[in-house]
Write a protein that binds this DNA or RNA. Structure first.
Lengths: 192, 192, 192, 192
DNA sequence: AATGAATGAGTCTTCATTCAT
DNA sequence: AATGAATGAAGACTCATTCAT
């Protein structure tokens, strides 16, 4: 009960302020529990943060998995993965930022390792989908699937970030089209 | 004199610890000046950080510009831009991280705006080069140059990051080839 | 049932950490009861501590009494008292320390008074034995029995403490001989 | 300047409350400096405590040394040492208690080691004087000088403690006589 | 131009205690 | 008789910033 409330509040607060500016006081207040209750449910700030990030990764992976099905053509599956991540980066911009980026700053090393592990798992998940695409249809280029997953995530986040501060200039459809194009065909017509 | 030393030390310290974990004490110590001297030369921590980031952006832009010349074919110019940014992300990993990412966390809003402006200028610079490529040769796809610049930066950083924690699996050449392929041709052979 | 378990665990925990560093959490855990059970059986931490100290005093007094008997020559009785206290200070070093010394630190005043009373009773018990020695045989010097009891306890504890951190240099027998000599004859051959 | 004030205040506060109940807030208040000033001058609570204890040991040793001189007969020297320690235990009861006893509780292990070292040095100092007495005059029994020093300190403190809570029953002279007797001749007329 | 002692608001964390069940 | 979730006061410590020199 309290744990739920705390996790929700912590997600909000970490998203808004980032790890370091977020204070346990603020989280307790927003969760409407006493500060001690935070420490009754989580060992400390960094562990609470880890729980938030973990829930975030699990959520995006769960949502993506649910929407996929082997019945779909690989091409469609990848489009859906992209769309899910776009949703995440657009709807929960700040949350996505902490989940994908705040992982590197000044967090206790032991927790940091676990966070990196979570990120690795997420990338593996994406890479797995890409690898399938390579095996099956021969649709995909023969690039390293892990690098491809990593590069795609960074590309998506950066692009969404830019989009969000220039919303008047693009529509959501523009964004999707751009992303699909870049992923699919790259920037150049030909470089040879 | 002092200003130089402080700027160098601040770059080192911010790179190592990130904005929030970096302390003015540590910076003063590494710069071998008294703490008061920091405040004599810079109004405060966030302003000092801004100066560091600004110098960072200027450096990468300067280095890139120097290496370009209208004599070169556009294609080659873009390769060089990519290579310069790869260098930055690989050699000064942490520095690049704060320059490109720490900009969004929990920094005082007034300074944050100026930092965002700096990032915008850098993206404009890159977008400018891409736009040239579009005008001139018809080599490039007709995607939005600004989005393309933003997406490329994100892709580069994320890819380098992954590469740096998996160096045993890839060579630097692998990395370059991958990046060039992705930028040039995207991930798919065809999606239609 | 629970009370017993708690008392045992509390003794262990107080002995290991001292009064202030010992936590009710730790005690509950070691006693394998819920924290609430502690408060069901004892009014609070200081009262629990008092119970532990009381049991400690009673134990050493009981053990000593059991081993004495009016049949024994006074001299032998005193040797036995010394030996019992040596055993206590050596075998249950930390426990003895809290029983005899932690009594004065920063404990709630109300409980502190009761603890001091317990110590007083123990000293009275020892002084009683000494007084007997004085009456009966004329073996003992005509010093104040209460002061003598107090001084002896302090001497024993301090000596055992030193011994315990220099065990490689002395045998247990050395220690006993030293203590008996000091008690019996003092440090000097003659001071007149 | 501040350092002095802090050290004085800390001595007062630690003496009154013991290590754990003493709070940095209270010390800062009594020293009339801001809390930050405490940490500017001392790395932390335990280090501040160490400084207090160190000053205490140095003070008693200094005062004792000053009063001794090789011209005096050994017997007189030892009487003076005893008197100085009596003064300390009587005049600065609480301070002496923390200096000699609080050394064992729940202090950070690294600092604890240094504190133990200080105590060791003090005992060595006392043992040195005793050893002289053994060499020179043959006045002293052939007991281990280190054990003798340790036992004497414990005896003194314990006796003073008892005296202080029963002042109506003894005079200071009674106390001195008792202590001298015990040290000199022990408790028994003869035990053989 | 430079210093560094001093500050105090802000943070994380601990823990004895309570109480509804 | 026993539980354990929840509390909140209290405490140690950090650090950007100020200012007299």
């Amino acid at each position: 009960m309290s744990k739920e409330k705390i996790l929700h509040a912590a997600t909000r607060v970490f998203s808004e302020y980032g790890y370091h500016r977020a204070s346990m006081d603020e989280i307790a207040q927003q969760a409407q529990v006493a500060k001690g209750t935070l420490y009754y449910n989580f060992p400390g700030k960094s562990q609470l943060f880890k729980a938030v990030v973990k829930a975030g990764f699990e959520d995006i992976m769960e949502r993506t998995k649910t929407d996929l099905s082997s019945a779909l053509p690989i091409k469609e599956q990848i489009l859906r993965v992209l769309r899910h991540h776009l949703d995440l980066f657009l709807d929960s911009r700040h949350f996505a930022h902490i989940v994908f980026n705040e992982i590197s700053n000044g967090i206790e090393p032991d927790v940091l390792d676990e966070l990196k592990q979570l990120r690795r798992e997420h990338l593996s998940f994406l890479a797995g989908i890409l690898r399938e695409a390579q095996c099956e249809g021969g649709i995909m280029r023969d690039v390293d699937a892990d690098l491809a997953a990593a590069s795609t995530i960074g590309m998506l986040e950066s692009t969404c970030n830019y989009y969000l501060s220039h919303q008047e200039e693009y529509s959501r459809e523009d964004l999707e089209n751009f992303v699909f194009t870049v992923v699919a065909e790259g920037l150049f017509k030909s470089l040879d």
